[in-house]
Design a protein around this nucleic acid. Structure first.
Lengths: 259, 259
DNA sequence: GGGTACTCTATACAACGTACAGAGTTATGG
DNA sequence: CCATAACTCTGTACGTTGTATAGAGTACCC
């Protein structure tokens, strides 16, 4: 087990400053600034941070590492960004903004649309594993967050939902996807870190687990646990879990329209 | 925004040692040990850790704080527990083990049973806010984890699911609950930290958000976002979100039985 | 051409988990 | 009975983190 226990709190900073950054309010600052020209841009900082986090997770994202990647001193970053939490805000908005948003066809059934939203979000989380470790306390309302929200709400057209229910439905879908992605990423991480596949691990410690699979004490758990393990070849089958969850989510939403 | 970015990885330690600890294998050690009697117990350490984490989250859970609470030096803890990640394993198993598990009546419809499982898990997450920050990479198969799994699997009796599907269904339900709990805890945290309610925050920064609620650029988002905000009184309504998600989950599961 | 606002750097601090070395204590083997 | 081995608990120390603070140098404004 691992945590992501950290300071890293946000929303703490001045929200006005954060919003300026998110929308890259060059208008807010005078066109001609005084001292030396800046050698970098906010985007460069964000991109460097993204490269680090995408590759090595939030653990690899340190201000020192970002600075080194950009060839500057750590403290230089604070000229571009008020702190690490604001940098995370910017990273989040950036990956949201860059998501593909193919327009929905007017004839496309809502199940297809919601499925494609779910698929896109799963892919997003797998490409940016640090996303699941982010605690989005007060969503940074940047262009990416807004564009994503706007687009994804449209997927629920034709379900007969009022506005409030539509927001709830989207939250519900995204929550399910995120939960699945989290489990999947955790499973991947453990294989990488222990250099041992799930199956190998289980085999290696089978003797110790005799009491766990004690059919007398835990009849259901041992039976179902083993059935699941056998079905997936000893591995947690993320693909299967995702397909199952998505089907349930869609059916659950469908039941809204047919009371 | 905040993270829980941290080392704190587990499964890293010797799994045999962890299992011994989880099941409190006093049998594994000789009855009479050599040096001085131990002044504490593993349970005392776990309880101290739980008190800290329940009150202040994972940020408050430091080895130094646990030690201070027990009146010992930080390093003393390492006599009882190999490291922090194993301590987290023990904490997780402990709170699972202590959950209430009222037996299901044989006549009780599955919807009631699954609802009570969901309710119990929501309550668990709200009582132990650090749970959502834990990355359960390789579930520590202690008595608590097993008992919980055994109990919760029983809730799906009568749905006509095979063993593999039953495991998937449980995972799906727990994932939804956890996603909701996470959002709820994040919402709470931000109110506490900023000493500003969601409504106050929005009001204070409304001018800055003009472009966000630009009806021309984000017609759906601004309309739906505002409708949701008005419906909840400006606040994220966790109760509503939970009820909505649970109803969808149950309907989604119901669709399994009626093809 | 000062003064001022800026950029970037160097140093420093308080946390964190825990490695390491030791001092003191107890059961065990000769 | 006593030396030794095994154990508990402590003190100190290291490397890593985010970032406060102070200063050196640079470019624009009046």
């Amino acid at each position: 087990m691992a945590t992501t226990g950290g300071k890293n709190s946000s929303g703490a900073g001045d929200p006005a400053r954060t919003l300026e950054l998110l929308w890259r309010d060059s208008a807010a600052a005078p066109a001609a600034r005084r001292g030396p020209r800046q050698g970098l841009t906010v985007d460069a900082v964000v991109d460097a941070a993204l490269a680090l986090a995408d590759g090595g997770g939030l653990d690899a994202l340190t201000m020192r590492a970002v600075a080194q990647r950009l060839g500057v001193t750590p403290m230089t970053l604070y000229t571009y960004v008020p702190g690490k939490s604001e940098l995370l805000d910017l990273m989040l908005d950036a990956v949201f903004l860059r998501m593909d948003r193919p327009p929905f066809g007017p004839e496309q059934p809502w199940r297809d649309r919601v499925t494609s939203v779910a698929d896109a979000n799963r892919a997003l989380h797998l490409r940016h594993p640090w996303l699941v470790d982010l605690r989005i306390v007060r969503a940074p309302l940047g262009p990416g967050v807004m564009a994503k929200y706007e687009y994804e709400l449209a997927a629920f057209e034709g379900l007969g939902l009022d506005d409030v229910a539509r927001d709830s439905a989207l939250t519900f879908v995204l929550g399910s996807v995120q939960a699945g992605a989290r489990a999947e990423l955790d499973a991947r991480a453990v294989e990488r870190e222990s250099a041992m596949s799930d199956g190998e691990w289980w085999a290696a410690h089978e003797p110790l687990l005799a009491r766990v699979f004690d059919g007398a004490r835990f009849p259901l758990a041992s039976r179902v646990g083993e059935a699941a393990a056998v079905a997936y070849g000893g591995l947690y089958d993320a693909e299967h879990a995702y397909a199952f969850a998505l089907a349930r989510v869609l059916d659950g939403l469908a039941a809204l329209g047919t009371p």
